[in-house]
Design a protein around this nucleic acid. Structure first.
Lengths: 341, 341
DNA sequence: AAATTTTAGTTAAACGTTTAAATGGATTTG
DNA sequence: CAAATCCATTTAAACGTTTAACTAAAATTT
């Protein structure tokens, strides 16, 4: 069953070098022998051994994918979906992805991912926020690296980022277009660039529409942007401001919390209050009503990252290109026209 | 930076064979030289090249993971989570997982996964229902194989399966314990063993509790067990049976549809109707109220599968062991005591 | 003390490729 | 027509390991 290049060479009456040249198209070979060799290859169902090729070429054909344990295991499949995108593209590029996760408190003593130590990858994709220690220690190995959804401190690598500002502008504009003027922003962890960009986009959209920004409609003191804090922030917002007709939550998790608060307190969505989230999480369509949100193209982010890394691997000169992936407004049933007073 | 076994040998004043023996503990070496070699290995930060080891040993240290495109891409991260489980265990076993998906209509002409063709894996894990053609063609390669959540036609491989009957019994017993007697079953695609097992468990639980099985409380004519069909089946059920106080849906997707129907039609959950699902999908906790369900331990299924495959790879004799993974009742807020008439 | 066994280590082949250098016949050049 | 060039192909080394076969010294047996 398992045939080698030697078997092919023997049966085709050529040297193994010729077979190699035919396979890789690396030297001119006469049409005649070329077809003969190809025929034998097919007959014997020959496929080059990856280990052998790796050993001699120094290239492994693998790309490492690193993320932290919490991102790996969190119920929300955000980075996992990005991983699927890389895998998808890897297949058509002829690469394999080796996935591994590391502890969020990665320290000097922790061992680096195996695939770096035993040289099993040609490049690395790092998704999400990752400890600096790790970044530094990896950089010693001079492997091409691409970051996804994170801006590392010393940046000389290609980046794949979400266009958060544009997304926030789209979300806010959608509410403005529906006639809303009292539009609140609910956020949290404003130190995180992604979320502060979303706030920035919100403000920009209001300004462009000549709607004044009211600080009492901006609730950003939550530590984490999760469901519970969405609920709490909504409580804080609505207990003081009765005239809010629309809310833009910085992500879907918070939006879900807001929705629960509204449901529990007699507000009808979208009749009384319109609600927009951000991320397009799977759970959104299960909600009642399904959530209008900004879709982040996770698969595409993975695809982009893989393209970048393959480029770096092949060309060796990795220019620190930044790819801002565009986002998209998904209108479902949690938003509607502002009802006239 | 990159050191080889030769560098170690030279610096430690031994032959490369000795270094190899020390690394693999494959021949007796004096304590003296052993420590010396190990010291040099550490100093040079030496790690054996995986390609070289693979080439000479014939073992790749990789396990292939195959699932169909639709399972790979579906929003519900069921098989993906199982994959994460295998990856998790693979890391501690020193293996890498190579993941690939194939088209659900895989035909004779389609190429087999690359990792099979170029001998990049020592064994294969197959998750979910997969075309028979593929199974047959793979079997020609004599690779150890493990199936997850699927019983192949010609079964001589280890299997990892969900204990569906036990889960259904648990779900139904929970409702019985709460005092319910008019308990409906909503299912679909009853040809699928998993779902018919769940129906079987439901009936068994009722019998054990001496509650008669009423066929009009069993709705299983839906083609696919999804949200929309859950809604439709609920409509059919409740329009004819006003006295139903509890529903066991064959999976969470259908349960969510049932919940929407109940919400839309003035039934309070759980006050009027208790509802139990199956699978423990991420979206469940986002629901209003959060869904009581049966948790399927996806990560653990992956872990089990990897253990089985490593066993097969190492021992070469793969006895067709079946692992039934236990499920667990997760009580949330969609079930409560049956209110007295 | 000679013969045998054990122990610790070395030598060299093998794994399946790629590729620089060599070859030898055909074609072109002066 | 000899010399130079070109083309298709072969030879052989290299990649970094494992391991069977060998060796030499030490320990054990007779």
């Amino acid at each position: 069953m398992k045939s080698t290049i030697k078997d092919v060479a023997k049966k085709a009456n050529v040297s193994i070098a010729t077979v190699s040249f035919v396979i890789n198209d690396s030297k001119p070979i006469s049409e005649e022998t070329k077809t003969r060799v190809l025929k034998v290859i097919k007959e014997l169902n020959y496929h080059p051994s990856k280990s052998a090729v790796s050993l001699v070429s120094g290239k492994t054909g693998n790309i490492g994918f690193i993320l932290t344990d919490d991102h790996f295991l969190r119920t929300e499949p955000f980075y996992t979906t990005i991983f699927l995108g890389t895998e998808f593209e890897a297949r058509s590029e002829g690469y394999y992805i080796l996935l591994t996760s590391i502890r969020p408190d990665f320290s000097e003593e922790d061992p680096l991912p195996r695939f770096i130590l035993n040289k099993s990858v040609d490049g690395i994709i790092i998704a999400g926020k990752i400890p600096h220690t790790l970044i530094e220690r990896i950089s010693a190995y001079k492997l091409p690296t691409v970051f996804i959804d994170y801006i590392p401190p010393t940046n000389s690598c290609p980046l794949v980022l979400i266009d958060n500002i544009q997304g926030a502008v789209q979300a806010t504009n959608h509410l403005i277009d529906l006639g809303h003027t009292n539009i609140a922003f609910i956020g949290g962890d404003i130190g995180h660039p992604s979320l502060s960009h979303r706030l920035y986009g919100y403000k920009q959209a209001l300004e462009n529409a000549n709607i004044s920004i009211k600080n009492n409609l901006i609730v950003v003191d939550a530590k984490y942007p999760d469901k519970q804090n969405g609920f709490n922030s909504a409580k804080k917002l609505f207990s003081k401001n009765k005239n809010v007709t629309a809310v833009f939550a910085c992500n879907d998790a918070m939006a879900i919390g807001v929705l629960h608060y509204l449901n529990d307190n007699g507000y009808k969505v979208p009749q009384d209050v319109s609600l927009v989230g951000f991320d397009d999480v799977e759970a959104d369509i299960m909600l009642h009503p399904p959530l209008t949100t900004i879709r982040v193209p996770k698969i595409e982010m993975g695809v982009e990252a893989l393209k970048l890394i393959v480029n770096s691997v092949k060309s060796k000169k990795s220019l620190p290109k930044k790819v801002l992936v565009p986002v998209e407004l998904i209108v479902r049933e949690s938003t509607s026209l502002c009802k006239p007073k």
